[in-house]
Nucleic acid binder design. Sequence first.
DNA 1: TTGCAAATGAGAACTATTATCATTTGCTAT
DNA 2: ATAGCAAATGATAATAGTTCTCATTTGCAA
Lengths: 142, 142
Amino acid sequence: MDKPQPGHLKNAGLKSTVPRIRILELFELGQERHMSAEDVYKHLLASGDDVGLATVYRVLTQFEQAGLLTRHNFEGGKSVFELNQGKHHDHIVCLQCGHVEEFYDAAIESRQEKIAAERGFAVHDHSLHIYADCTKKKCPYK
Amino acid sequence: MDKPQPGHLKNAGLKSTVPRIRILELFELGQERHMSAEDVYKHLLASGDDVGLATVYRVLTQFEQAGLLTRHNFEGGKSVFELNQGKHHDHIVCLQCGHVEEFYDAAIESRQEKIAAERGFAVHDHSLHIYADCTKKKCPYK
DNA sequence: TTGCAAATGAGAACTATTATCATTTGCTAT
DNA sequence: ATAGCAAATGATAATAGTTCTCATTTGCAA
């Protein structure tokens, strides 16, 4: 077999239920890396799964707390989730099409540490979002 | 006289109306630097001004577009505004006490521009929030 | 002043998310 | 396997923040 292991769920202290397995599958096997609750809900409905929107919200929050997913609060009011695969990165978000691109920059990371330390803060975590317009052909909305 | 000049409004192409003048005063003369729409609304009501919440939202958005205010989308779902005094800065937020400290780092700013340009994006704006714990005595919650 | 477009206020509408609660489901001990 | 029961679910109501609608008011130019 080649299907996602529900082990992730058990390890996280979560019962293996149908909605949880489906949602985890969607993030692990699906093509979209960043999805809002609404996105997840629509994908599941399209796949013939019968889940409620409330369950999607609950499960996403549980997955976030369990460390399986990371939540991002981008502009536009809705939360977006992505699989937490260990490696930290920041985001560039296209204001035209909503396309999200990831990046990591060691210089920025270390400057942040330094700045926080200088002011007497111990960094817990940070969020850096660059909002921009695609200037390339990749943006379908221009 | 020593009152706020409505010139700011006219220069921004906005008619000088009572609600706009009051809101601008609140940011220019008030003691709070970061305020949500609800915060502004309550302050105005407390001052005896009779403005509607819808007007507050409209005016804040107009001020943002005119460059008079800057909007921040912090975690927690609500937008927070602050007077735009020319100098861009980012924020460190203490996870214990919620204290917000501002900082500016030229190295981070230029790295961001470079990263975006390399990927074919024209930066519109960005948000960098460092979430940390005060390690100094300044935090009253530790 | 008068006129009229622009701005306002009250409340409806909307969007994202959370809470409620009766019903269903996954697991555990038979 | 199976019964029991807590945990999870789905439908829907409720909430929070914000935007929209539209009748009335206001700022300002002639």
